[in-house]
């Protein structure tokens, strides 16, 4: 392992890619937080919008999962 430049790059890249998961978490939190803010303003309308909430969370999360996947690929498949 010592002195293996390619491996260093691989692990660094994996770590950097994993940051994407954390940034996606910001997006998911943003979606959920705004939903909560809206739901507290108009609680009667909130019940019908949970499906929309989950769709939004799923789309925001998908991109985080992509970066996680890149990290996994760098770690295990390159």
């Amino acid at each position: 392992m010592e002195g293996n430049i390619a491996e260093i790059g691989q692990f660094l890249g994996a770590g950097l890619a994993a940051m994407g998961s954390g940034i996606a978490a910001l997006g998911v939190g943003n979606v959920a937080g705004n939903f909560l803010a809206g739901a507290l303003r108009n609680p009667s309308a909130a019940g019908g919008q949970t499906a929309t909430l989950f769709i939004g969370i799923a789309f925001a999360e998908a991109l985080g999962i992509f970066s996680f996947l890149v990290a996994l690929l760098l770690m295990f498949a390159v």
Binding site: E61, A62, I65, F66, F68, L69
Partner: peptide, 11 residues
């Protein structure tokens, strides 16, 4: 995205 979301979350 549909497939990787599920597989990625579980993995």
């Amino acid at each position: 995205s549909h497939s990787i979301r599920l597989a990625g979350n579980l993995t």
